[in-house]
Design a protein around this nucleic acid. Structure first.
Lengths: 223, 223
DNA sequence: ACAAAAGTGTTAAGAATACACCCATGT
DNA sequence: ACATGGGTGTATTCTTAACACTTTTGT
């Protein structure tokens, strides 16, 4: 090879999902710098030489939204987008991760402001091609909870069957039948009942369940 | 930002699949240079600044195995692997594509020798982490033909139902019942019969079918 | 007439869907 | 006693899975 290899810009972006009030939300930040200054965008940053993409993702989570890998029970690499220029110098490649959590607390940082969760079904205009990226991530998330136990990451350790069903409805974007949902999900044999109940409001308390294993596993059949 | 950004090495590798004699095969080349000189590996190469990963993939296909994007009815980006070093300088990120074809002819080049198809179920040792990459690609391919019409890319334009079934069996790695296969696949309503027959050998000729659309579409139900 | 792959239908078991009432609790 | 969400079962339809013989062709 008679030429000097010069690598393209490599960046990492993260799609963080959480279910809030029965709706699927995504974490966005307000950009403090050009391009797209002032607009909403996914948290992201450069991937420097010597860093794996996961290390770069850790750095992004920490520096942009004050979170760490340990806050997410499930993280998956989604896709490498040949993004529109984030940088006037030209073309960049962005490795995008999806992270699922519950009860997340995020914080401002030097380079971003107001990291906050927005409902995915009513995102306005957001920066770069990030609208496409979020749509792609939602599709992947649906596939993951349809064929695998990925929901566990959207729920606390102990949860009621209604909370589980709500998470499914938020992700799939449609209502499910309560009796059929319970019958089917319990038949997968991935949950175990605890001996505790969750009480909230003037009605019967709900039995708390947990996943036998809090890691992703295939389901017997698709949900 | 008070530091000069230096990007990691970016490479592209391609997993080319084809069904030959009822078995799924993958295209490998013999490396002419270190590292792994003389061993089998996926065709791959550097992604230079200014190139999208698809352009880099085109270059790899052309220069390493004498094929072009047009030879593949279906190409999909698989995953970004933080590969073990391909390069003594250190860590590299490799964007891997999967390409499906039929009746492919490939050729030697300056940097590689003997590009050839090997059955995926009896690969010996191959270079880098390419064995893992092929396993990952097979898994993805299975998902694609289970829920989508991706098989079309493994077949010529006109084909018999037996050829279709053989492609499924090669990819899924198990035998299927002929009557159930036909009933179910035809019920998807994605095929149309031609008025031609395919004859080969001393037996009844088979009616040729084609896909109504030679592009990927979801199936009504999983296969 | 035989060998070889093409083509075709039925039955039984399992999965999905549709659907409505009683239970336990707080106020 | 009432309002609220928790919890439960059955009947119907659809899907899957198991299974064997006749047809058409070349030699």
């Amino acid at each position: 090879m008679a030429y000097v290899y010069h690598a393209p810009t490599l960046t990492v972006d993260v799609v963080v999902f959480q279910v809030i009030d029965g709706r699927l939300h995504v974490l966005l930040i307000k950009r403090k710098n050009e391009p797209f200054k002032g607009e909403l965008a996914l948290p992201g940053g450069y991937n420097a030489a010597g860093d794996t993409t996961r290390q770069a993702m850790d750095r992004v989570l920490k520096s942009k939204v004050g979170l760490s890998r340990a806050d997410f029970p499930f993280i998956e690499q989604l896709y490498a987008f040949d993004t529109v220029a984030r940088d006037p110098r030209g073309h960049a490649v962005s490795i995008v991760y999806m992270a699922l959590g519950n009860n997340l607390e995020c914080h401002d940082s030097e380079t971003t402001q107001e990291p906050a969760f927005y409902p995915v079904d009513e995102l306005g205009d957001i920066a770069f091609d990030h609208e496409d990226i979020v749509a792609y991530a939602v599709e992947r998330l649906r596939a993951r909870i349809t064929s695998f136990t990925a929901v566990f990451a959207l729920l606390p350790e102990d949860f009621t069957l209604t909370q589980l069903q709500t998470a499914y409805e938020a992700v799939l974007g449609r209502k499910l039948d309560k009796r059929n949902f319970r019958k089917k999900f319990l038949s997968f044999d991935v949950l175990e009942p605890t001996d505790k109940y969750y009480q909230e409001g003037a009605h019967r308390p709900a039995l708390l369940y947990r996943f036998k294993e809090r890691k992703i596993q295939p389901l017997l059949r698709d949900f």
